[in-house]
């Protein structure tokens, strides 16, 4: 079983017993400088993912969830372009390299498990990345990676709206379940 570098490389900030299904370690944190770095983090993360893996992405509008997913897709070698799935709820990007497909979900508008079920996602044969999926999609798997992206919010110093996309983000990655033990 491959181990996520994000679960292992930050001993200082990792605590708690990993390994029991559903039990989590506290996450590792990364500060990400802008969109290019967010994509690079996605590529790094994507390189550790395989069929059956589930990534639950959390963060406010404009945090960089789709940007991170674009990096994951590049690492997996799937057909792009990876754009926002909001309008279609879920989009399947077929693998171009004989690996797992990437299913990119926006669960913001889904209200319950029945609506999630309607999307007919093939969890076993795909890597599933779910934006706004926290509290809903975890039930689909015994293991998942929680990825929380925080961007600056509220009042700041001399904020220029033009700089917003490139402001630094803090990304916290927390593995759950036996897959990441």
């Amino acid at each position: 079983m491959s181990r996520s570098p994000f679960a292992g490389d930050a001993g200082e900030s990792t605590s708690g017993a990993a390994g029991d299904a559903g039990e989590s370690t506290s996450g590792t944190q990364r500060v990400v400088g802008g969109t290019a770095e967010m994509e690079a983090l996605g590529r790094e993360l994507g390189a550790t993912l395989r069929a059956g893996d589930l990534v639950v992405l959390t963060g406010p509008l404009g945090a960089g969830k789709t940007t991170l997913t674009r990096g994951i897709g590049e690492a997996l070698g799937v057909r792009g372009p990876i754009t926002s799935p909001t309008f279609v709820l879920a989009r399947t990007h077929p693998s171009l390299v004989g690996g797992p497909d990437l299913v990119h979900v926006d669960a913001y508008r889904l209200r319950d498990a029945v609506e999630l079920d309607d999307l007919d996602i093939d969890y076993e044969r795909s890597v599933v990345v779910a934006e706004w999926g926290h509290g809903l999609i975890e039930a689909e798997s015994d293991s998942w990676l929680d990825v929380v992206i925080a961007r600056p919010e509220g009042a700041g110093d001399d904020f220029d709206p033009a700089d917003a996309p490139e402001e630094p983000r803090t990304v916290t990655i927390t593995p759950h379940g036996p897959r990441w033990a």
Binding site: L61, G62, A63, T67, S84, R151, A155, P161, P165
Partner: peptide
Amino acid sequence: SGLKTAVARWVEQRADA
């Protein structure tokens, strides 16, 4: 997407203040 972020940030700043 960046435009959307900029609007969100601008509105949040106003609301916070």
